[in-house]
């Protein structure tokens, strides 16, 4: 049955939208390095692209794909296939399509023009974000019949995770500035995959600034490999968790 997931995934990779997405990232990724002579600045620009564009495009494309392939999914469902292989094929196919686009568009120029640990962490972050937001998009799509509503909801999720969440965090920091809140902030951040992905990279590029923080917990977290390790672990959890709910819904719903 693993073959089936692979067939579905292979079929998905031929999707035009994924190709266009890869092209967009490639223009941004390769273009940035060609016009900017300082790779330290480029990597920060690419970080912004990864944090903003990747979640947005991935989740919108995944949502549209899911609704547009309703017939395809139905065609698969009437074959002697397990539902879990079908949804896994869709998830794996979409994720790997987005990840591949990201690796070609952003990852490759990073490795070629600026092969550093920071670049490596950015590539990891983008990869994780692609998978996570594919999962979140499917989570919304499988729980919602209406395509337009799903897109709206996915957009809200994107705005929340990329902008509003950090806004709330900053507001909380101002309100509680007199208390020792570092630990809570650190844990709060784990609730947002975009923040964790950002932190993973910033730990590499701006460690000097992060270590300026006085809290011992920060020093412990950012000063060692432990920080990267924990951040990656959280991203992995964020990658798996939405999919588990997607699967549960997909196995029990009617078509």
């Amino acid at each position: 049955m693993q073959n089936i997931s692979f067939s579905i995934a292979a079929d998905l990779l031929k999707n035009k939208a994924i190709f266009i997405y890869g092209l967009l990232l490639a223009v941004l990724g390769w273009g940035m390095f060609l016009i900017e002579s300082q790779p330290e600045k480029t990597i920060l620009a690419l970080l912004q692209i990864t944090l903003i564009v990747v979640p947005l495009m991935t989740s919108i494309f995944a949502t549209i794909y899911y609704y547009n392939s309703a017939e395809f999914i139905q065609l698969l469902l009437i074959q002697p296939l397990k539902r879990r292989s079908i949804i896994w094929g869709i998830f794996a196919g979409l994720s790997s399509g987005f990840v591949l686009s990201f690796l070609v568009g952003i990852g490759l120029p990073l490795l070629l023009f600026y092969p550093t640990t920071a670049s490596l962490h950015l590539i990891l972050s983008g990869t994780f974000l692609s998978v996570i937001f594919t999962g979140l998009a499917l989570l919304v799509s499988t729980h919602q019949q209406d395509k337009a509503r799903s897109i709206g909801f996915v957009l809200l999720l994107w705005i929340f995770f990329t902008f509003i969440f950090d806004g709330i965090l900053l507001w909380a920091m101002y309100q509680l500035a007199d208390y020792p809140i570092e630990q809570s902030i650190l844990f709060g951040t784990f609730l947002n995959p975009v923040s964790v992905a950002r932190t993973l990279v910033v730990m590499q590029t701006e460690a000097a600034a992060l270590l300026g923080l006085s809290g011992a917990i920060f020093k412990d977290f950012f000063g060692s490999l432990k920080g990267s390790f924990i951040a990656m672990l959280i991203l992995i959890i964020w990658g798996i968790l939405p999919y588990l709910f997607v699967k549960r819904k997909f196995l029990t719903r009617d078509f």
Partner: peptide
């Protein structure tokens, strides 16, 4: 901001901060 609330450094390169 980080001068007033040092732990805000944690939001470095956040898209929200950029905004």
């Amino acid at each position: 901001i980080t001068n007033e609330v040092p732990s805000a450094t944690f939001l470095l390169h956040s898209p929200f901060v950029r905004l």
